[in-house]
Amino acid sequence: MFLVFLCFLFGSSEALLDPDTTNGNSDHTAILQLITQEQSLRLQLESQLHDQQKQMDTLLSRVNNLTDQLTKANQQVAFFGTVGTNIPSADSDKIIKFQQITTNLGSAYNINTGVFHCPVSGIYIVSCSAIGDIGHRVSVNVYQNGNVIARPYDGGIDPAGHASGTDTAVVHANAGDEIYLKNFYTGATYLDNQTRLVVVLIKAD
């Protein structure tokens, strides 16, 4: 009886180790191949996603640049104002304020301070017409950040009326630059109320 049991046990062991072992190895190899393929596909997909993200970033950057260019192209900045009241010569060293404003596109001019703040960088045209008291010469300094860029001056004297002088400058200004009038000279008692200033953005950077 014991011999029969040993024969049965030996036979069962061979059955476990023999033909099915080959099938098990094949399945294992197939699983490893599938895992390898899955990892390769995942790496390819990650690489493709990374490339697509770079392309999206590039396109987004181009769209933003085009939007900025369009915004600048449509940017309108223009100011035209008149002093509106005679300014006494005692105030000649103060910033001249233009109280009667006809145009202030872009809201660049501050009526409280008398300073035109350039809202965008670009090329600006600045023109000033200064008028003095009857029969007297007049000159005014136009500044950009403290530097004189124009000086309207009337060299003649009209004893019967007001003389005027006009000067124009075309300058490049950065966003935040300040343009203002100050330090006028007149031989009489005041700067006339019809003194005018024009500032227009010609082209944004």
Rank of each mutant, 00 (worst) to 15 (best):
L6N: 08
N193A: 14
D167I: 02
S121R: 05
G84R: 02
G84V: 07
A78I: 02
E14G: 11
Y190G: 02
C118A: 15
I96P: 00
H172S: 15
E178I: 06
K182Q: 15
D18A: 14
T113Y: 09
C128A: 15
D167L: 03
S40P: 00
N141D: 14
N65G: 06
K97M: 08
R151Y: 00
A163C: 10
N64T: 12
A130Y: 00
I131G: 04
D192C: 07
A150C: 01
A15G: 08
Q75K: 13
N65K: 14
F116H: 05
D133C: 02
A173D: 01
D93N: 13
L6C: 10
S107Q: 14
N110A: 11
G114K: 05
D192K: 09
F116D: 00
E14H: 11
Q144G: 00
G24P: 01
V83K: 03
Q55N: 12
L3G: 08
N174F: 08
N23D: 12
G106M: 04
N141M: 04
Q194E: 09
L17D: 10
I149F: 04
I101K: 07
E46N: 14
S127D: 06
H162K: 07
S89F: 08
F184G: 07
N145D: 14
D177P: 07
C7I: 13
R62V: 08
Q144S: 08
T85M: 08
H50Y: 11
V138D: 01
L70V: 12
A150S: 08
N145T: 06
S139M: 06
F98S: 05
G24Q: 14
L43A: 15
A173L: 14
L60W: 06
V120L: 03
I134T: 15
G165I: 04
T82C: 03
Q52R: 15
Q53R: 15
S129I: 10
T22W: 07
Q100V: 11
Q144N: 10
I202E: 03
T58Y: 04
E178P: 01
I179G: 02
L43I: 11
T82L: 12
I131P: 00
A160D: 11
D158Y: 12
I123L: 14
G84K: 04
S139A: 13
N112T: 14
Y109H: 06
L49T: 10
N104D: 15
N174A: 12
Y109V: 03
A160C: 02
L181G: 01
L9I: 12
A188T: 01
S26I: 14
D93F: 07
E38S: 15
Y143W: 04
N145H: 06
E178W: 06
A130C: 08
L9T: 14
Y124G: 07
S164C: 07
S164P: 00
V77Y: 03
T58S: 13
N147H: 10
N145I: 05
I87S: 00
G114F: 05
Q39H: 09
Y185Q: 12
L105C: 04
A30G: 03
H172P: 09
K54D: 13
T195M: 02
A175L: 03
L59N: 10
G132K: 02
A188L: 03
Y109I: 00
K97Y: 03
A204P: 09
H136G: 05
L191D: 05
